[in-house]
Amino acid sequence: MTAWWVALRAVVIREALRFLSQRGRFLAALVRPLVWLLVFAAGFRAALGLSIVPPYQTYITYEVYIVPGLVGMIQLFNGMQSSLSLVYDQEMGSMRLLLTSPLPRWWLLFAKLLAGTLVSILQIAVFLALAWGFGIEMEPLGYLAVLPVLVLTGLMLGALGLFISSTIRQLENFAGVMNFVIFPMFFLSTALYPLWKMAESSPLLRDICAFNPFTHAVEAIRFALYLQWNGPALFWTALSFAAFLAAALWGYDPARGLTRRRAG
């Protein structure tokens, strides 16, 4: 085994152990999408009529429509939280420790992102199982087909969080990030309403939604859950990942100074 692989494995194991030992975090990560699914969607079902659009081949209830968006939401929160914890609490120390490893910095940051992504997939697995328990089912093989897509979408959203953590100093708390990153990304996407529904209310909103990388992540997840290929969504998600990762690497370039404000 090469040192690269050993380090990747170590980072992933640490993240998984930390996650499993923090039951509160696990519960919070589950309760959030479940509230949306069981309360919001139930109430909203009456208000929103959905026509048959791909990948759906029959009429679906709103609960069924919203599931891929909530899966995306789990990854969105996860990506922001794990990266922001780097800035705000003692995790900054563990980041310093990570970066003293003699492996290339891009690999270390990638390992960190992949570890966070795998943790988000654990959360999603439990969420989908609970949804299934409430009668909200996807294609049986879709649960497998979505796995590689979730790796990509998780990496993309994690890279965005990492970039934000490295640069933006004004958003000094999680509420700021909620308001200015998570909410706009989530609401201006196809997570809650399909694009054509948005277009009915405002073409501008529709265009913003269509541009939002989160929309493409959600659509890639949605199609995979129904065993359908959505090339454009995967392409835009991959491109966004490349862009965010490049930005994050720039943000963590030692010549720019990761801890400029912090070192005394």
Binding site: A7, L17, S21
Partner: peptide
């Protein structure tokens, strides 16, 4: 280089050996 930072950088919920295994892994030891 071996480093001990001023701020503790510990995973409080892990065992001593687990924490050290993580660090060994970062240096390619398994």
């Amino acid at each position: 280089i071996g480093v001990v930072f001023q701020q503790p950088t510990l995973d409080l919920d892990l065992s001593v050996r687990r924490s050290l295994r993580y660090f060994a892994g970062l240096h390619g030891l398994s």
